[in-house]
């Protein structure tokens, strides 16, 4: 059998305040194969976002193992994680997180700058992806001048411009109306069909239906795994 892209085993994460210790992830074990589209669901505070952050190497676990493409990354340094992240993972956020001071083009170009792609190549690739997302005509506009749906398209364009193997989406339709939300889900499905692995956190059963598999979390543990296909 093909080795999984992501394999986490007995992952634990605690949050401590002065008096209380909260367990966000409690000996969680999950596998995600290359090319899968996985939805993670669960009530508020079940650990969805914590899991996504650890998968995205924005945060590190307290205990347990995280193997990404065959490499144990659980205790990588910040610099190594950042390096692995920028070449392999794209992020899509609920609140888009575009930089207000940069135009659409410049926002999408940013990951390419950080991975050291030469200027001419950058222009080509940004134009290509903007074209694909059908927002080419907005390339010189600033985020505030766009609708929510358009902003999320830009955010997705930015997430995929580096051709990542994995896209992590944190409630990508949470700030959108249903029509724009459906468009975004179609886009993600297309990307998945072209081979990108997608892990999406969502509250919406409707959105979750686009995925192959739903992982339901409660109190930091897997409760159910539904296979959609």
């Amino acid at each position: 059998m093909e080795a999984p892209m992501i394999k986490i085993t007995d992952l634990e994460k605690f949050y401590r305040t002065e008096e209380v210790e909260t367990i966000a992830l409690n000996k969680l074990s999950i596998e995600v194969k290359t090319g899968e589209f996985v939805a993670i669901m669960g009530p508020s505070g079940c650990g969805k976002s914590t899991l996504l952050n650890i998968l995205g190497m924005l945060d590190d676990p307290d205990e347990g193992s995280y193997v990404f493409n065959g490499v144990e990354v659980a205790h990588f340094t910040e610099r190594k994680r950042a390096d692995l992240r920028k070449h392999n993972i794209g992020f899509v956020f609920q609140s888009f997180n575009l930089i207000d001071e940069l135009t659409v083009f410049e926002n999408v170009e940013l990951p390419l700058i950080y991975t050291g792609v030469p200027s001419a190549e950058r222009v080509k690739r940004v134009e290509e992806v903007l074209d694909k997302m059908q927002i080419m005509h907005r390339r010189n506009h600033y985020p505030q001048q766009l609708s929510g749906g358009q902003q999320q398209r830009v955010a997705i364009a930015r997430a995929v411009v580096n051709k990542p193997k994995l896209i992590l989406a944190d409630e990508p339709t949470g700030n959108l109306d249903s029509s724009n939300g459906n468009d975004v889900m179609e886009l993600l499905t297309d990307l998945n069909e072209q081979g990108t692995t997608i892990i999406m956190v969502t509250h919406s059963e409707h959105d979750a239906r686009y995925s192959h598999r739903i992982i339901r979390l409660l109190d930091g543990q897997t409760v159910v795994e539904n296979i959609m296909i």
Binding site: I99, P111, Y114, R158
Partner: peptide
């Protein structure tokens, strides 16, 4: 802060 966060997620090193 948000700008810094986004840039870091996109792979910006601290020095940059």
């Amino acid at each position: 802060a948000r700008e810094v966060g986004v840039r870091k997620v996109l792979g910006s090193p601290r020095s940059a």
